[in-house]
Amino acid sequence: MGDLVRVENLKKYFPIRKGILGKKINYVKAVDNVSFSIKSGETLGLVGESGCGKTTTGRTVIKLYEPTEGKIYYEDKDITNLTNREMMSIRRKMQMIFQDPYASLNPRMTVSDIIRESMVVHKMYNENERREKIKELLDIVGLNSEQANRYPHEFSGGQRQRVGIARALAVEPKFIICDEPISALDVSIQAQIINTLEDLQKKYNLTYLFIAHDLSMVKHISNKIAVMYLGNMVEVAESNELYMNPQHPYTKALLSAIPIPDPDKSKKKKRIMLEGEVPSPIKPPRGCKFHPRCKYKKKICTEEQPVLKDLGNNHKIACHLF
């Protein structure tokens, strides 16, 4: 199967301005040379420290942000430099489910208006068809059609997140970026949403980029997992492989910090503590960006930035130890 989405050497820098003239004095290098691909119908999990550039990566891939450098391919078509108008038909196929179900739904619109809006924007269906479609979508995400005329604040967090999913599905997307879609929900509802996402994926051959801090859930839903550190991708592998056999010193520390929902096992667990301070994306360290916190660093780590290398069986890592 081919890649639905491919990203090559993607960079996104945010200028920091100062003074009344708005002179650019520096850049936040939020995403700094990231490459990955996602096969059609599969899920790539994206994990890493808070502030490492996950959300920015997601938003840049669907061009909610203009990339600073690099290439983005959708179905092998280079979409990096498409104008907004040219993007219109492709944008419909790329949707995003946001982290915060409270902030991302317009409080003054009913649920059915919220779902209808995106169909209207993309000029899909006539009004009758839209009404049918809304019913169908509510059913798919597990809400009943009586609830269609309610407002977001009348729903629980889990129900709101379903409204967000229904809205994303309304325009028949192929690629959905799920940015922390479940972290605000209790685990019994998290499991409902994840099962729904998986069922939909099978039914419509959807492709997901799944961003989350809950590594157990990421592992559950993803085929592959990519680990980011300070704007770079440091390790990518099949999810079982990454979980069982992590290689990068940062990935090892990250996995060792997963809290285990079992008090006795949790007490016995050995955590790898990271030394040193989290560096700033404005003045990232030279060489390997992880080197100030890495206990295996060698001289070369402080001088040269390691590139992603394939260790075989599609396990890629950016570290001078390999």
Binding site: S156, G158, Q159, D186, V187, S188, I189, Q190, A191, Q192, I194, N195, E198, L215, S216, M217, K219, H220, N240, Y243, M244, I258, P261
Partner: peptide, 27 residues
């Protein structure tokens, strides 16, 4: 409810993927 919550958590040590077990229904 407590039992259901504990059952809903994915077990990352499993190599073969199993469907999660949510508690059906709404709050």
């Amino acid at each position: 409810y407590t039992k259901g919550l504990l059952r809903s958590v994915p077990n990352p040590d499993k190599l073969i993927k199993e469907k999660l077990i949510p508690i059906d229904g709404q709050p």
